[in-house]
Amino acid sequence: MGGSMADTVGQSHRQRLVWLSMLAMPLLFPVALPGMASAVGAFCLFIALGLCLGQPVPLPRWLAQRELNGRAVTVLKRAVDRVVGVVARLGRPRMLALSNRPARVANGVMLSLAGLSMMVPVPIISFDNVLPALAIVLISWGLRLRDGLMLLTGHLVTLAALASVALLWWGGARLATEMISRVAQFLPW
């Protein structure tokens, strides 16, 4: 970990995937953190674009040059060490065909779909980011550890996240339409 964001986030996909998973983990709990889902979703799209292109996309200059203070670096290092210790025990290289170079674009697309499903605002519901966050964590660590089982699970969770967001939007639209029609019955027009 360096002093700037560019040094800390790193220039390789493997380093960036660790940070993406670390950012997504707090969203696994159904609590509302305003703006967090959009930021994680945008970073997810950024990394997914790099995966699809085959090379990491440089951070924007304004973000790359941002300095981290010593206390933040210490806290981040401790958190990363703790998470890596736990995840390394769970994952291992297996089903390598899913994490090989030919599957890179498919993994990038699934990661971008997970990021997009996280960025879509779902009104009223506070647990709408749990599935996309889980998908991002599984895909990130699956790619990082070359664990095809984690990747496959992440892809399935991504599909479930997309379906849940679509269902929540459909249900919300139906509810809003029903409420508007009931209120309109009482209006004197």
Rank of each mutant, 00 (worst) to 15 (best):
N69S: 03
L175R: 06
L113Q: 02
P34Y: 05
A163S: 13
V73L: 15
V84S: 10
M5Q: 07
L143D: 04
L49W: 14
T74F: 07
A135C: 00
V157W: 01
L20K: 04
I136K: 00
S117R: 03
S164L: 14
D81I: 08
Q15M: 11
P30H: 10
K77L: 04
G108K: 05
L152C: 07
V183R: 10
L53K: 15
F127Y: 06
V57P: 02
G2I: 10
L113V: 14
M5S: 07
V75T: 08
V87Q: 03
L68H: 14
S38I: 12
R66N: 04
S21A: 15
R71M: 05
V86M: 05
V87F: 09
R16Q: 15
P123C: 12
A24N: 11
M118A: 10
L111M: 15
V86A: 09
F127C: 03
L96S: 14
V109C: 06
L138S: 03
G50W: 06
V183D: 06
Q15A: 13
A88H: 12
A88K: 07
L151C: 05
S117P: 05
A114Y: 01
F127G: 12
D7N: 10
E178S: 14
P26M: 07
P102I: 12
V120Q: 01
F127R: 00
V18T: 10
V86F: 06
L98K: 07
N107F: 04
P93Y: 07
I180L: 15
A114E: 01
G41E: 02
L143K: 05
A160C: 13
N107M: 11
Q11N: 07
V18R: 04
R78N: 09
L167A: 13
A160T: 05
L149Q: 03
W189E: 00
V183F: 12
K77T: 15
H13P: 04
Q55C: 06
R101L: 15
E67F: 06
L168N: 15
N100K: 13
S21F: 02
R144Y: 15
M110H: 08
R174N: 07
P102H: 14
V31Q: 14
L111E: 05
S140P: 05
R16D: 00
P26E: 03
L159E: 04
G35F: 12
A176K: 09
G154M: 04
V137T: 09
A72Y: 01
L134D: 02
R182F: 10
V83W: 12
L28E: 04
Q65H: 10
M150H: 08
P121N: 03
P60C: 10
A133S: 14
M95D: 06
I136W: 02
L20W: 04
G108D: 08
G115W: 05
P30N: 09
P30S: 09
G35D: 05
V57T: 13
